[in-house]
């Protein structure tokens, strides 16, 4: 630190970034190679920021690294017309929120806890999923199924966790309304309006987890009141087995339908 050796290392990474951006320009913004060059430049910005945070140990929080990274590459994401770049940017946004809530949980003078963090992630990923699906109808380079599927998994994970919190803690009840609404919307969008079996399978898995947790919670309640038998757990095992079989049967039926 404070020497030319260290500054030379910054220079090297910055040169690589400049080279990648010039390559984007020379190779052409609409060619796959040009787009890859822009993705590479976006990754190298992260290398530069990591080098910065290691060279100058000021105690900056890790969420700042991800948030600044996302901010700096935002213009490239917008002009890049590359699905992978958008997904990478959304991943950075997710990481910023996760680490922000974990390490510096204040926003507008309010203390953020895990529940607030999950709502923020749910809002971000669901909104991104909605925009993606609507835009993909007109924009060809967005029509990659893996991206909305990942967003659907992210959205499902956060709302499922919120629903579990709602089941186990009395004072968290918003999810008890939002979760069923989310399931209905997902079913309407991916069973009726369009057909995506992977998203439907994720929905089934989420429902199985929620129902199982609900049953476990009921057993705990009964045990607290002196009742509750070991056989209750056998019942849960059977319920899981039954729900998994039913989901499998339903999804298989949908596959057969879409083949016809």
């Amino acid at each position: 630190m404070h020497n030319w050796n260290e500054l030379a290392r910054f220079g090297l990474v910055e040169l690589a970034i400049v080279a990648a951006v010039l390559a984007y320009w020379r190779l052409g913004p609409d060619r796959a190679t040009g787009k890859t060059a822009l993705l590479l430049a976006s990754l190298l910005i992260g290398v530069l920021l990591a080098l910065f945070s290691r060279s100058y140990q000021t105690g900056a929080d890790i969420w700042e690294l991800f948030a600044i990274w996302a901010a700096l590459i935002a213009p490239w994401v917008i002009i890049g017309r590359l699905a992978g770049l958008w997904m990478f940017w959304l991943a950075l946004a997710n990481l910023s929120i996760i680490f922000y809530v974990k390490t510096y949980p204040w926003l507008f003078g309010m203390f953020l806890n895990t529940e607030h963090g999950l709502w923020m992630l749910f809002a971000l990923n669901s909104l991104a999923l909605l925009c993606w699906e609507l835009a993909a109808r007109r924009i060809a380079w967005l029509a990659k199924r893996w991206a909305p599927r990942l967003l659907a998994i992210a959205s499902a994970t956060s709302i499922t966790l919120l629903m579990l919190l709602g089941l186990f803690f009395q004072d968290i009840d918003t999810a008890l309304i939002v979760y069923p609404a989310w399931l209905v919307c997902a079913c309407a969008a991916y069973r009726v309006a369009s057909r995506d079996l992977i998203v439907l399978a994720v929905g089934c898995l989420s429902l199985i987890v929620v129902v199982t947790s609900f049953l476990v919670e009921q057993i705990f309640v009964r045990q607290r009141h002196g009742g509750g038998e070991t056989i209750d757990f056998l019942f849960i095992a059977l319920a899981v087995f039954g729900m998994a079989a039913a989901s499998g049967w339903w999804l298989k039926k949908l596959v057969r339908e879409s083949r016809q």
């Binding site: 910054f10 970034i17 002009i79």
Partner: peptide, 14 residues
Amino acid sequence: VAIAACVAALSLVN
């Protein structure tokens, strides 16, 4: 835009 964003990002870091 790509080049302008590059210049802006590197200026900020430097």
